[in-house]
Nucleic acid binder design. Sequence first.
DNA 1: AATGAATGAGGTTTCATTCAT
DNA 2: TATGAATGAAACCTCATTCAT
Lengths: 202, 202, 202, 202
Amino acid sequence: MTHIQKRNPQQTRDRLVRAALDLFTTRGYHASTTPEIAARAGVAEGTIYRHFESKQHLLNEIYRAAVRLLLKAPQASVSGSCRERLAAVAEQWRDVAARDPALIKLVFFTDLEGLLDAKSREIKTELTQALTRIIASGKAAGEVRAGAADVWAEVWLALTVLTLGRIAAREWPATAPAVVQVRDAALEALRVREAPPDVRTL
Amino acid sequence: MTHIQKRNPQQTRDRLVRAALDLFTTRGYHASTTPEIAARAGVAEGTIYRHFESKQHLLNEIYRAAVRLLLKAPQASVSGSCRERLAAVAEQWRDVAARDPALIKLVFFTDLEGLLDAKSREIKTELTQALTRIIASGKAAGEVRAGAADVWAEVWLALTVLTLGRIAAREWPATAPAVVQVRDAALEALRVREAPPDVRTL
Amino acid sequence: MTHIQKRNPQQTRDRLVRAALDLFTTRGYHASTTPEIAARAGVAEGTIYRHFESKQHLLNEIYRAAVRLLLKAPQASVSGSCRERLAAVAEQWRDVAARDPALIKLVFFTDLEGLLDAKSREIKTELTQALTRIIASGKAAGEVRAGAADVWAEVWLALTVLTLGRIAAREWPATAPAVVQVRDAALEALRVREAPPDVRTL
Amino acid sequence: MTHIQKRNPQQTRDRLVRAALDLFTTRGYHASTTPEIAARAGVAEGTIYRHFESKQHLLNEIYRAAVRLLLKAPQASVSGSCRERLAAVAEQWRDVAARDPALIKLVFFTDLEGLLDAKSREIKTELTQALTRIIASGKAAGEVRAGAADVWAEVWLALTVLTLGRIAAREWPATAPAVVQVRDAALEALRVREAPPDVRTL
DNA sequence: AATGAATGAGGTTTCATTCAT
DNA sequence: TATGAATGAAACCTCATTCAT
């Protein structure tokens, strides 16, 4: 009667993560049911609970993994001018959006109000903080227009996310003219310049 | 035994709309139950269905009313330079955000994936179209930087919405420096200038 | 599709209480499922939750009602000798056992470990306390053998409950010789005598 | 990858029995899950089913072992007066209660309604029968008050079990005054006397 | 004999909706 | 129009049991 599939447990977990990610980002969290998730992963419903404490824990684990992936970009980009560093982050994120749109949708386009736990909320703020640090250093170097660094971070993020959303939705290819238009608009908004010649070296 | 409240039917409907709006924008649609909505409106559960076909119809009616309200701003602003018109729209929307934050949250910050009907999706596109028209006219007048008008509309909207969200969340007062910073950034991004002197008039 | 039964809500509640009482005392709490309870009450499963917060609350409400009923006996019996008062309690409880065996089974023969809430545990101790008070007054009057009153209460209760169980199980009629045998054994165990003549009156 | 513990199979079985006994008597049968039992026994979930057909079989085997142990006392006590024999049984059972409270709890204080199989129910009746035989012989010798022997057996058992419960729960030490009080009350209830002088021997 | 991932029936509970009053 | 008890499908989750390893 019972047909037990033997599989590498990591494999099962991965299938569940993928199924949940896809459903959460298309239907939303509440509209994605555990039977659906299990069916899409090709496992029994109970199997979900051998790998995750609850549906909400499943969401949070996926969410944190996604944010952690996005955090790599600003964390890796430590050298170069502010402009170059922001460009590097945007480029890597566009790659993610093209390769795995669901990740982008989960982090930036899914309403997770009241579903994220403390750890998830914390890592989420790290994202804006990482951007704020890049811009703050750019300000110190005179590359950025006057204004609060965290606000500039939000401005840049809002416009970058606009692009990511279209790429993730396959509405814009990653190389569309609109992508360049928005990217330049973001830099223009902050008036991020190349580092000016260092006066002291003269 | 049953205690029937005699009330102006419009009043009852309004109370339901307000209750639903508040709940949808704080808890989200799925997490807001019809018993809760009725309780907050001070009516019986069944009363909802005297005024709305279903919970989803209720949402759509509220949504359309909200978008219609926001549409007033671009539709009213028919004269003046592009810069002036955008400024007028932003100002009116900031007023809305300060006065009735839930409206802003519903339209711009609530995930309504799969819940909106055709009519709602249609009126939503009217919003960006109205903005696009303003910018297109600005482009014709040479006030806006090169680039697709609908993309500029999205850029301006993304930054304006960023501000509205903070105002609606009571995180920024409508007159905060950050509001000015973002507003100017948006205009700078599009490089929206005052109308240049009309050569033909010389 | 849906067929809504209109009934007096109190009636529905009573039917649920009766169904749950019967099932809890025959199958046990855990083995009685909510579908079974609803079916036996002739209502839909969801109806349970309009009347009780949860299955466990349902149990506790029934439990307290049962104990409250049993408490009436010792509370009513305020006058007379200790022997008479205990006899009165036993008689009333035997009536309950004959009339509504499930009540007796729930209070004395169902394992409710970990299922009773604080209020229920509290009212349960009132039962032994009420008995202890009767015996303590008997001791003061010299009607009861030496020994801790609360222990005598437990002894009397153990033997009375033995009888109640058989009556409730319909194994003994309320008037069986065994009932008399155990009742007298209980009184003998405590050596509950009629009140001796009050020396002071001589 | 799988780590197989090599152990004496009897040892594994014993660990499972102990774990189940402990859990069944603290949480109850239904509230004790097989994963919990396995965890407490330090074995894998599946291992339970190498030693027992099912959870219910496990319960029944434990139950019968427990009753068998308790049966030793009345079966061993074949000589002496009725009073002495009952005293011997009680003493041995008090030892069990002090040494292994779970056994006492399982047999006398756990609701096993609907869980015991025919064999278990049968051995359980042997317990009262053994007591009944002791009392019947006492009656024949004129040591016990008039009344049905099986009822006296139940009376004596009810009071003895009262004591065992308190000892098992560590609420009374085995030598508490209350223990003596209840023991004597039981004997008094039956009016178990020392054997009267045998008239025929005069 | 032992493992433990997988199963799936079935548990409790929620909630949008209905309809007799 | 309003009520609110009733409905029942369906949600999330548990857990005794199986079986490939």
